[in-house]
Each structure stands twice: as structure tokens, then as C-alpha cells.
């Protein structure tokens, strides 16, 4: 009976206050979408780390015609220099850090380049001569890059040593910055949502002050008087959180899954299923924010 009564009170409260309730739903929706977007970026970073860190290599680029580096004073790399480098790579001092390595000739480099940029016009203007040959090294421990770099940078015939991981780090730090921005916006929006929930609950308590006054007088418990108001705020916020979760899922499914993954087939994007990990967190966050702000408002404006 009491439960039915409380549910009825919630229903009438939501109906009477419909415009405010809609605005609470929208504000929590937007703020939690930003929170979720930050979460998705982090998931994506982890995903890409896992995917790329297995594949990235340290590349030793060899001198070619136009090279200006100090090691290239003798012109393009000679077969002896190339053989020396190969021996050095196989020597125990270096081999302990190396899983395996391959030589990539100019022609192979051109082939890979064509594959990677197949839909870009730049392919037509590049010839195999312009691309340097290289040794591709799979490290046992990618952190030991420095050792390879020190050993090979000064060798004759080596133009430069590049750690592909550093290129990725740059991408990841950009993504981290983006998720930080999303979190900051979310923070401002959450403050907005809390204030709006407080105002809504206050209005709701005011518009039902006759009822609550009588409830007090006939000895209704604090829970029966306050719970409808608190649940009103919580329900609105949870609806907003559900909308936010739905939006994130839709972004993962339609934008990442159907669009971006076709544009960049070698990139591992997060699956829509993974965004569902975020949904419970958003629901709990939205619900508890609303619950706490309603409770504090009621302590001030609805004495029992």
C-alpha cells in the first residue's frame, strides 16, 4: 500500500513538473555523454596500445641518394655496410634484445607504401628510389629502444633509427588530451545538472507543500514524505544516463563500427559491446548525483 502510494506520488510529481523534469533529463544526458566519451577514448587508447605494441618495430633506415645525415657522408649505403649492419644485428651484444629482424629493400618499401596509401594520390608521385631501405627490428622489450638507437645511429650507412612506438605515443597523448577536455566539459555540465536537480526538487516540494504538511501532521514517516521527491530526481537522472549510454553505443556502432573501421581497416576500434561496460557506471553516477543533491535540497526545504 505504501509502495503504491509512493509510486503514485512520484507519478504525479513528474507530471506536474514535466518541463523541469525534461530539462534534468537533457542536462544529465549531455553531461554523462561527455563523461562516457572520455571513458570511450580511454578504452580506445588501451585497445590500440594492445594492438599496436605487438606490431611496432624499431626501423633502421639506410642511406639513400638524397641523405644528408652524418653517417651518409659516403653516399648511399654500400652492400658491405649493409652486410656489416646485418652482422652487428646478429651479434650476441644486440641479439639479446631482438626477437627477429627483416631487411626491407627499396622495392618492398615501395610496395608497402602503395598498400598503405592506396587511396591517396601521393602514390603516383613516389618512385622506389625515393624510399629508403631499412632493417625492421622486433624488440623483445620495446623499452630497450635506446640501446639499439645508440648502437646503430653512428654506424656508417645508417641514416636514422626510428622507434615507431614514439609516433604512437604522440597519437595517444593527443587522445588523452581530448579525453581530458571531455572530462572538463562533463565536470561543468555535472555542476549544472546538480543545481538544476536541486531547483527542480525545490519547486516540486513547494508545489506539494499542502500534501507534505498534512503528511507531517498525521505522522507519516520521513521516508514516506521524502522518498517520492528523491526518486523523482533519481528517475529523471537515470533516464538521462540511459540516453547517454544509448548514444555512446550508437557512436561505437554506427560511427566507429560502420564508418571509421571501413576508412581505416588496420586500426582496432572498440566494439559497441565494450561501451556497455560504461553504461552501469553512468547509470550509477547519474542516479547517485541526483539522489545526493535531492537529499541535500530536501533537508533545507522540506523539514519533517
Amino acid at each position: 500500500m505504501r509502495l503504491a502510494f509512493i509510486l503514485g506520488e512520484i507519478g504525479s510529481g513528474l507530471r506536474r513538473n514535466i518541463t523541469m523534469v525534461v530539462s534534468v533529463i537533457l542536462v544529465t544526458f549531455v553531461s554523462l555523454t561527455f563523461v562516457g566519451a572520455a571513458g570511450m577514448l580511454q578504452l580506445q587508447i588501451n585497445q590500440m596500445k594492445g594492438y599496436w605494441y605487438d606490431k611496432v618495430q624499431v626501423a633502421i633506415f639506410l642511406c639513400s641518394d638524397g641523405s644528408t645525415a652524418a653517417g651518409c657522408a659516403t653516399g648511399p649505403v654500400t652492400p658491405e655496410q649493409q652486410e656489416n649492419l646485418k652482422t652487428l644485428l646478429a651479434s650476441p651484444a644486440v641479439a639479446q634484445y631482438v626477437n627477429d629482424f627483416q631487411f626491407e629493400s627499396k622495392d618492398e618499401a615501395y610496395k608497402h607504401f602503395k598498400e598503405q596509401f592506396s587511396n591517396s594520390p601521393i602514390v603516383d608521385s613516389v618512385t622506389p628510389d625515393q624510399l629508403p631501405a631499412s632493417f625492421r627490428i622486433n624488440m623483445k622489450d620495446p623499452e630497450k629502444y635506446q640501446i639499439i638507437s645508440e648502437t646503430f645511429s653512428s654506424q656508417p650507412g645508417v641514416e636514422t633509427v626510428i622507434d615507431q612506438r614514439q609516433l604512437l605515443e604522440r597519437l595517444f597523448s593527443a587522445m588523452n588530451a581530448a579525453s581530458l577536455v571531455a572530462v572538463s566539459i562533463a565536470g561543468v555540465m555535472i555542476v549544472c545538472a546538480i543545481l538544476l536537480i536541486a531547483t527542480t526538487i525545490r519547486l516540486s516540494a513547494f508545489s506539494r507543500r499542502r500534501e507534505t504538511g498534512i503528511m507531517r501532521l498525521v505522522g507519516a514517516s520521513k521516508i514516506v514524505i521524502q522518498l517520492p521527491f528523491i526518486l523523482e530526481g533519481v528517475i529523471a537522472a537515470v533516464i538521462g544516463a540511459a540516453l547517454a549510454s544509448g548514444t555512446l553505443w550508437a557512436v561505437a556502432h554506427f560511427f566507429l563500427g560502420e564508418y571509421l573501421s571501413k576508412q581505416y581497416p588496420d586500426t582496432a576500434f572498440i566494439s559497441p559491446g565494450q561501451t556497455l561496460i560504461l553504461a552501469p557506471a553512468l547509470l550509477i553516477l547519474g542516479g547517485s548525483l541526483a539522489g545526493i543533491s535531492s537529499l541535500l535540497t530536501l533537508r533545507r526545504y522540506l523539514k519533517v
Binding site: 500500500m1 505504501r2 502510494f5 500534501e211 504538511g213 498534512i214 498525521v218 514517516s221 514516506v224 514524505i225
Partner: peptide
């Protein structure tokens, strides 16, 4: 201090509903 939108019966019943 009656609730204007509730009938006579509902006004009296209200006092019993809220205490369960």
C-alpha cells in the same frame, strides 16, 4: 487544509495511506 483536487473520501483516506 483540505487537498482541493481530492474527494472527501480521498482526503480522509490520505491520512491513512501515508502511514501505510
Amino acid at each position: 487544509r483540505l487537498l482541493p483536487q481530492k474527494s472527501v473520501f480521498a482526503n480522509v483516506a490520505f491520512a491513512m495511506q501515508v502511514i501505510g
